[in-house]
């Protein structure tokens, strides 16, 4: 009885995982098969025709030599890395300050940070468009980065504030007693102990920017300035399913690994950050 139950459970798990991940499986398959098979490859395989001779890395070569795609990749990397860096740095400073001191205005600041978490990105587009076009930053990567900073900064502050809440202040006090100044305190004490939280914040900000579609599509009209999301969408709009598949696999792999790496911290900080206080 017990054994049948577990066999059934295994069957159920295998089936549901396959069904749920079928699109992912499919896109990986397409990316390795030649172009003429892209529409039918799955049913071919279901009928037992594996078409091993059509296996190819051509799609990857094609997409990696596409100057547009490389440009998007570069744009995305620049925007995401700079935003993640700035956001983590500022979040680190603010998170530490908020966590350690009871200063006037602390509560208001924290609550306003929480409220911003509810504010969907699409709602920020209207004011951002106006402000950026007044500043002449529309259609530039700098303007886009500023807009992204607005979405990642609150979360970075939350993650790092939450982290410093869990660390006792003994080490810092010891450092100060030993005569460390502010810069030394930051450089020798704070940054080393908060490395995991910094990594979480950096990765999260990076991935958020890497994945953002709505703002970048409205902000950037020039194809050479596209970041990856509108770029990849445009591949699909041009009916280039193989290129799309290869691009998707290439773009997703780093994100998946980075997210897997921080998922525990992420879930914790998401739930704590939003529910506490």
């Amino acid at each position: 009885m017990k054994r049948i139950y577990y066999v059934l459970i295994q069957l159920f798990l295998i089936l549901s995982v396959i069904l749920l991940l079928l699109p992912v499986l499919w896109v990986v398959l397409i990316s390795f098969y030649s172009r003429d098979l892209m529409r039918t490859i799955f049913s071919e395989i279901l009928h037992g025709r594996l078409h091993l001779s059509s296996l190819t890395l051509g799609n990857y070569l094609y997409i990696l030599t596409d100057p547009n795609f490389l440009q998007w990749l570069l744009n995305s990397a620049i925007v995401a890395a700079s935003v993640a860096f700035v956001s983590t740095f500022i979040g680190f400073m603010a998170g530490y300050g908020i966590s350690r001191y009871q200063f006037p205005g602390r509560r208001v600041f924290l609550i306003s940070l929480l409220v911003t978490q509810l504010f969907p990105i699409a709602m920020m587009i209207v004011p951002f468009l106006i402000i950026m076009s007044l500043l002449g930053l529309i259609g530039t990567l700098q303007g886009l980065s500023l807009a992204y900073l607005a979405t990642t900064l609150p979360f970075s502050i939350w993650i790092l504030k939450g982290f410093f809440d869990t660390v006792p202040s003994d080490i810092e006090e010891a450092a100060v007693v030993d005569g460390a100044n502010l810069l030394q305190l930051i450089g020798y004490v704070l940054i080393p102990i908060s490395r995991p939280a910094l990594a979480t914040s950096f990765i999260f900000s990076f991935v958020t920017c890497w994945n953002e579609y709505a703002i970048s599509f409205v902000f950037l009209s020039d194809v050479s300035l596209y970041t990856l999301p509108p770029g990849i969408k445009s591949l699909l709009d041009n009916n280039d399913l193989s290129g799309f598949a290869a691009a998707v696999v290439l773009v997703s792999i780093p994100v998946v690994f980075l997210f897997m790496y921080i998922r525990k911290e992420l879930v914790e900080s998401v739930t704590l950050g939003s529910v506490k206080e």
Binding site: M93, A94, Y96, G97, I98, R100, L153
Partner: peptide, 13 residues
Amino acid sequence: VVYIFIILALLLV
């Protein structure tokens, strides 16, 4: 000290 720490975040937010 606190305001030095949070001034950037405050302004940016």
